[in-house]
Computed example of a mutant assay.
Amino acid sequence: MSVANRPVHRPLSPHLQVYRPQLTSVLSILHRATGIALSVGALYLATWVVFAAASPSTYATFQGFNGSIVGRFVLGGWLFSLFFHLFNGIRHLFWDMGYGFEIKEAYRSGWIVVVAALVATAASWIVGLRLV
C-alpha cells in the first residue's frame, strides 16, 4: 500500500478534543463573543431609548429591570464586553503594525488586556454608582 492510500488515524483538522486551550485562542474567541455582545447591547440600548420615548411608565419598567440583579448583570457584562473589545482591539492594532507576535509578548499583552478590562469595568461601575 502506498503512502497516499494509507488510512489516516488522526483528526484531519484541529478541534477542541485535540488541542488544549491557550490564552491566545481563548482571547480570540472572547474577542469575537464580545463583538457579538456589543451588537446585542446596541439593540438593548436602542430599546432603552424607545421605552424612554414611549412614556414615563414604560421607561420606569425598563429602569426597574436595569436595577434588578439580572439587569445589573446584563449591564455589567455589556460594560466588560465594551472594555475588553476596546483593549483587545488596541492590541490587534499593535499586531497590525508588526509588534508583539513573540509568544511571551502575546501572553503578556493578553493578560494586560484582561486585567485592564476588569479594572476599567470595576472603576466605571464604581464611578457610576457614586454619580447616582
Rank of each mutant, 00 (worst) to 15 (best):
F94P: 09
F51R: 00
E102W: 03
T121L: 06
T24R: 12
V18G: 09
N5D: 13
V18E: 02
A37D: 08
L129E: 01
A116H: 02
H9I: 11
L45W: 13
L131Q: 11
Y44R: 02
I126T: 00
H85V: 00
G67V: 03
V70Y: 07
L75M: 08
A46N: 06
G77Y: 01
V8N: 07
R108G: 12
V132L: 00
S2D: 08
A46G: 14
V113I: 07
N66F: 03
I103K: 15
P14N: 12
N66H: 10
T24N: 11
I29E: 08
L131Y: 15
Y19W: 15
R10F: 13
R130C: 02
W48T: 01
Y44P: 05
S28Q: 02
Y99G: 07
V74Y: 10
I112T: 15
A37L: 11
G71Q: 01
A37M: 11
V26A: 15
S55F: 14
V115F: 11
V114Q: 08
L79M: 07
G67R: 10
R32P: 05
L27I: 08
L45P: 02
P56R: 08
V74Q: 07
A106Q: 00
I29S: 08
P7D: 03
T47N: 03
S124H: 14
L38R: 04
Y19H: 14
V3H: 03
R108D: 04
A123R: 00
G76S: 10
G64Q: 02
R130P: 01
A54T: 09
S55P: 14
F83K: 12
V18L: 12
L79F: 06
F73M: 06
Y59R: 09
G100E: 05
A33N: 05
G67M: 12
I90P: 10
A46E: 10
V3P: 03
M1D: 10
W78A: 08
A60K: 06
L129I: 00
Q22M: 00
I36L: 09
Y19S: 06
Y99A: 10
I112W: 07
Y44F: 15
W95D: 04
W95K: 06
S39A: 14
Q63F: 15
A53L: 14
S39W: 12
F84R: 02
S57G: 08
L27M: 12
I90G: 11
P56K: 09
P7L: 02
